[in-house]
Design a protein around this nucleic acid. Structure first.
Length: 412
RNA sequence: GUGGGUAUAGCGAAGCUGGUUAUCGCGCCAGAUUGUGGUUCUGGAGAUCCUGGGUUCAAGUCCCAGUACCCACC
C-alpha cells in the first residue's frame, strides 16, 4: 500500500490510498458522513455491511438480491471460506466477487473472531498464531497473521481485516494486557505480509486494503494506548473489536468515547459486530461509520422483524390473521413486493402469510424476513446519512431513539 | 360369529411385580441471540389415564362388565 498526498475536505483532512479515497462530506459533532471510493466502487457512510459469512446471506438471499435492497458492502468470512470450499478454489475461479456474483465492495473478516467464538474446541493461542479445530470436520487448523492475509488475498476482497485476538468481555487485566500486545505484533506481521502479497505479479487485487483492529476489553487505558499505537502504523482504516461480547451498552459507549477520538477521523472507523438500531445510532453519534451485525439476518431467520417502532416476533399468534405488511410504507420486497418488468410493484406479503410460511418451515418465510430486515438496516443508514448531510442529525437522532424505545415492539 | 390385542395431553408413545406432584417426542404459547448456531437454545401451558362397578390404607397399574378400534380365523 502506498499512501498518496492527502487533501483537506470539509474542514477535515481526507485520506487517499491506492485503492481507497475517503472524504468526509458532512459532520455534526463527532458524527460524520463520508464518501469512499474503492477499486470495487463507492461507499457512502455511515454504512451497514450485510453479513454473508460463507459467500451467501443465510436465508436464501443471493448476492443478486442485495442490489435490490440497497446493500453497499457485503461481508464474508476468512475462516469459513478457508475450511469450505477453500480459498485456493475461490482464487482459481477468479476471486470471491466473481464466485458469488457480487461486483461491489466486499470486506472479509480475518478469522480472529472465530478463534474466540469457537473456543472450547481445544484451541491453543501461541505467538505464531492459533491452533484450533474445524467446526465442519474437527480437523486441526492453524491460523496466524500470515495465513489470514494469504487467504484474504486469495479471496481478493476489497478490505481485509487484521488477524487479532478478541478476548472475552470480562477478562481481567492480566489476560487482556499481553493479549493486546500480541495483537499489535500480529498487526505488524499482517501489514508486512499484505504488502508482500499485494506486490506479487499474479495477485488478484493488488490494491487490497488492510484495516487494523483496536482491542483492550473495557479497560480504558489499554484501549487508548492500543489505539494510539495502531494509529501510528498508518493504515487506511481502523476497526474497534471486542465490544458487544457481554459488557453493558453503557460500558460499550464509554469505550467508544475514549477510542474513537484517538483514531484518525479522516479514515474509516468500523465498529465490529454491532448491533441494534439503537447501538448503531449511538455509535454514529460518537464518530463510527462502518458497522456489521448478524442481527438482521439471524433475527430474520428466527421470524423477528424490525420496524421503526421496535421489533415484531412473527411467530406470535397475534399475527395469525394480520393482513398488514411487516411495516406499512416499507419499500422492501416483502412489504412492497418486487419490481416487475413494467416498473410496477407487486402487492407484497402480509404478516399472516409470512407467519404461515415460518410455521410451515417454508424457506420463503426466512427469505422474506431477512430481505425485510436487511432493507430496514440499509434504509436506516440512508436516513442517518441524510440527517448528517442535511444538518438535522441531533433532532433526527432524538426522534428516532424515542420511536424505537416507545414503540410497541421489543428494542433489540 | 370365534380367538387375540389396544385404549394415557391436539398427535404418537413410556409408565417395571399397585406407593408422593403421571413421563417423553412432535405440535401449541412465550423469551433469548451483537466480527452468524439454517429454525438453535431456555422456559411455559395443556390429562376426568375409554366408561361403569369391584379389591385395597393406596389403582394409570389388579378383577368383572360394557364401549370403540386393530389383527387373525370362520
Amino acid at each position: 500500500m502506498v499512501k498518496k498526498e492527502g487533501s483537506p475536505g470539509e474542514g477535515y483532512a481526507d485520506s487517499d490510498w491506492e485503492g481507497c479515497h475517503y472524504k468526509i462530506i458532512a459532520s455534526c459533532g463527532r458524527a460524520k458522513s463520508a464518501h469512499m471510493e474503492t477499486v470495487h466502487g463507492e461507499i457512502e457512510t455511515p454504512v451497514f455491511m450485510n453479513v454473508g459469512t460463507a459467500a451467501a446471506i443465510k436465508g436464501g438471499v443471493s448476492a443478486d438480491d442485495l442490489y435490490e435492497i440497497g446493500t453497499q458492502v457485503e461481508l464474508s468470512n476468512t475462516y469459513h471460506l478457508h475450511v469450505r470450499p477453500g480459498d485456493g478454489l475461490i482464487r482459481e475461479l477468479g476471486g470471491l466477487h466473481r464466485f458469488m456474483g457480487w461486483d461491489r465492495p466486499i470486506l472479509t473478516d480475518s478469522g480472529g473472531f472465530q478463534v474466540f467464538s469457537l473456543a472450547g474446541t481445544g484451541r491453543k493461542i501461541r505467538e505464531e498464531g492459533v491452533f484450533f479445530h474445524s467446526h465442519i470436520d474437527g480437523r486441526k487448523i492453524f491460523m496466524g497473521p500470515e495465513e489470514s492475509m494469504r487467504i484474504q488475498s486469495n479471496l481478493a476482497s476489497t478490505i481485509a481485516m487484521a488477524f487479532d485476538e478478541c478476548p472475552p468481555a470480562l477478562a481481567d487485566r492480566t489476560y487482556i494486557e499481553p493479549s493486546v500486545e500480541r495483537t499489535t505484533r500480529w498487526l505488524r506481521r499482517c501489514m508486512e505480509e499484505m504488502r508482500r502479497l499485494n506486490a506479487l505479479p499474479d495477485t488478484l487485487n493488488p490494491r487490497q486494503l488492510l484495516f487494523g483492529i483496536n482491542q483492550g476489553g473495557i479497560l480504558p487505558d489499554i484501549r487508548l494506548r492500543h489505539a494510539e499505537e495502531i494509529r501510528s502504523l498508518d493504515l487506511p482504516g481502523y476497526a474497534i473489536g471486542g465490544l458487544a461480547v457481554g459488557e453493558t451498552h453503557e460500558e460499550m459507549y464509554s469505550i467508544l468515547d475514549i477510542v474513537v477520538p484517538a483514531l484518525p477521523r479522516e479514515k474509516p472507523t468500523y465498529l465490529m459486530g454491532v448491533g441494534t438500531p439503537e447501538n448503531i445510532i449511538e455509535a454514529v453519534d460518537r464518530g463510527v461509520d462502518f458497522f456489521d451485525c448478524v442481527y438482521p439476518s439471524r433475527n430474520g431467520r428466527h421470524g423477528h422483524v424490525y420496524t421503526h417502532r421496535g421489533k415484531l416476533n412473527l411467530f406470535n399468534s397475534k399475527y395469525e390473521k394480520d393482513p398488514l405488511p411487516i411495516e406499512e410504507g416499507c419499500g422492501c420486497p416483502a412489504c412492497a413486493g418486487s419490481v416487475r418488468p413494467d416498473g410496477s410493484r407487486g402487492p407484497g406479503f402480509s404478516r399472516a402469510y409470512i407467519r404461515h410460511l415460518l410455521k410451515a418451515k417454508e424457506i420463503l418465510g426466512l427469505r422474506l424476513c431477512v430481505l425485510h430486515n436487511l432493507y430496514f438496516y440499509n434504509h436506516l443508514m440512508e436516513e442517518i446519512r441524510e440527517a448528517i448531510r442535511g444538518g438535522t442529525w441531533r433532532d433526527w437522532k432524538e426522534a428516532a431513539l424515542r420511536r424505537y424505545r416507545g414503540g410497541a415492539g421489543q428494542s433489540s
